[in-house]
Write a protein that binds this DNA or RNA. Structure first.
Lengths: 333, 333
DNA sequence: TTGTAGGCGTTATCAT
DNA sequence: ATGATAACGCCTACAA
């Protein structure tokens, strides 16, 4: 295979110096129209493509924005990534993804890879990186953190309003008339899960309802854990008319358990999620849930990074959670 | 912000030449233990990280494998990507993703970006790139194409057995006793959709059943198109006892339409998908579908690229489709 | 406006 | 085994 042409090749072909070629490529300096035309002609005659690696070295910037995410096959992270992707599209910067697979060691490795690749900025989506590590990186380069709130780095964080969202969700069920409301928590080692749990508890208290431990089961954010948690709830044999799951995926799992046991949703049991994954609109019945604005968060994060890269304040918005009312909830009968 | 240390810095700190530092970094040449130790010490004293951009320029390879995909928030592509990701993990090569968003122009742009970034190999996931364009790239560098079959490039393609899978699916429904089987096709401008449609038709014919145009509705692979196609079928008022959708997503959509119309699945209507998205196991009821081995295909593609990169035959496997029988199908009543 | 001459951080080829 | 030295492809002062 012949080696791809370089600016020297097209310089020769166009009878100009390499610097002139570079100039028409970058537009940094005016170039005489005829020379410019010659260069352009040579460029597509030889099918020249600039080598971004070399350019990155020379310029000291890669035009890449690292996105530290957890998995390529997660709708949660996928919608965030899609937001980032679409906002960056057409611009000068491009996203480069690295996944942590929900494992700290892999996440650290992924971060290192991104840094070694000389990304110009970093968007961190959730994950378990220690606050200190994130602060350390943020001292070196523009960083935006989504779905977390790092003390001392608030301006660059786009946290999730877990507490507020869970409070609203629970309150909604209460207002429908439910009194025995179960909760399937997320992994309680993760702040989001705890905050949502707290929101659930507070909403109950504010309504003068007791918090009944037997109505609470711990999950792990996965569908399968939702299946199991719902099984636990059902087997306890305690009365309940609604289940509020810590995220949509666990709600799907719980839904499956209910289906297997012949429990009708929403007639026998209301079901509520958290996240508003795109697929929740197509669940059976469509899932009532807490909207998380993940796509929008991705867009905002991308915009924030671009602002940081141009030395402006990141100016991150905050998304107040709201409910997406669908057919999986109804008054108790 | 202080500039990150280079090998020169640690060379100075360790009283050796830059080349020696490079040697301990790459392990290309033996280095005296004490000098080696000094270098290593300096490396983590100064928190040195090799600059992969510079290394890429010098070595003439980026150690990156481009993955041309369509969307970051698609389970279909996500599971493929996850397979690639996991197989590459820990190895010398890393994936770099670029998305086409199902638009040819963006896909071409994405491909160019990958090439300009000097990826050492390319995995193309589905998409609409003209065969010629793919062949042209394949002439320049290792390429694996998943979910498509490019004439003249068969050894590097990992196609989907659409025809066979659809045939099996339809045959399964027939064997259950169904006679009036509807089909929601994918976008018929895409070969996969046509092949699945053909498989459906042939299975009917082989069973001595007529192909009834009024049982066929065209979709576009999306949930929403499934909703609409199912609506069309229902509104035609023709008798049917089963629906075979061209993919899982359209099956979800169809499921929603059936739900809205109070049609029970599988009691009143059997429903079948194609792809076996991970979420299909948690649908209500769990969806019977054609297993597509997307994760495995991703793994195989990654392995194929690595083999090509080391000048071996790609040696791609072929996955015979099989059925994943779940509760959304039953004999007609 | 244009060309020449470094330099970006690393690797690889030479000698030593 | 080790250290200069010359690339890698592009960019950017600096000169002209």
């Amino acid at each position: 295979m012949p080696k791809p042409p370089t600016i020297h090749d097209i310089a020769k072909a166009a009878n100009v110096s390499p610097s002139t070629v570079s100039r028409v490529l970058t537009g940094s300096t005016p170039v005489t129209p005829d020379k410019r035309a010659a260069v352009l002609a040579a460029i597509d005659a030889l099918k020249f493509k600039p080598n971004l690696v070399a350019r990155g070295l020379a310029r000291g910037q890669s035009m890449a924005i690292g996105v530290l995410t957890q998995s390529m096959s997660s709708l949660f992270f996928g919608e965030l990534a899609q937001g980032i992707d679409s906002h960056l599209r057409g611009g000068a910067y491009h996203p480069v993804y690295a996944t942590g697979q929900w494992q700290l060691d892999e996440e650290i490795e992924a971060l290192h890879l991104l840094l070694e690749r000389q990304v110009d900025g970093l968007i961190i989506l959730s994950g378990g990186m220690p606050d200190n590590a994130i602060r350390a990186v943020a001292a070196q380069m523009p960083v935006i953190v989504v779905t977390r709130s790092i003390p001392g780095l608030e301006a660059q964080c786009l946290p999730t309003e877990n507490y507020q969202g869970a409070y609203q969700a629970t309150r909604y069920l209460i207002e429908l008339g439910h009194r025995r409301i179960a909760h399937i928590t997320g992994l309680l080692t993760i702040p989001d899960a705890v905050e949502r749990y707290n929101g659930y508890c507070q909403a109950l208290r504010d309504a003068g309802l007791e918090i009944d431990e037997s109505l609470i089961a711990e999950g792990a954010f996965t569908e399968e854990s939702g299946v199991q948690a719902a099984d636990v709830l059902l087997q306890r044999g305690v009365a309940m008319t609604a289940i509020f799951a810590g995220n949509d995926q666990m709600a799907y799992g719980a839904r499956l358990t209910l289906y297997r046991h012949g429990v009708q949703v929403p007639d026998d049991m209301s079901l509520m999620g958290f996240d508003n994954l795109s697929s929740s609109a197509y669940a059976t019945p469509p899932l009532t849930t807490v909207r998380q604005y993940m796509y929008e968060a991705g867009v905002a994060a991308a915009e924030g990074i671009l602002r940081l890269l141009s030395d402006q304040a990141p100016n991150l918005p905050s998304f107040a959670p709201d409910l997406v009312i669908r057919a999986s909830t109804a008054p108790p009968r």
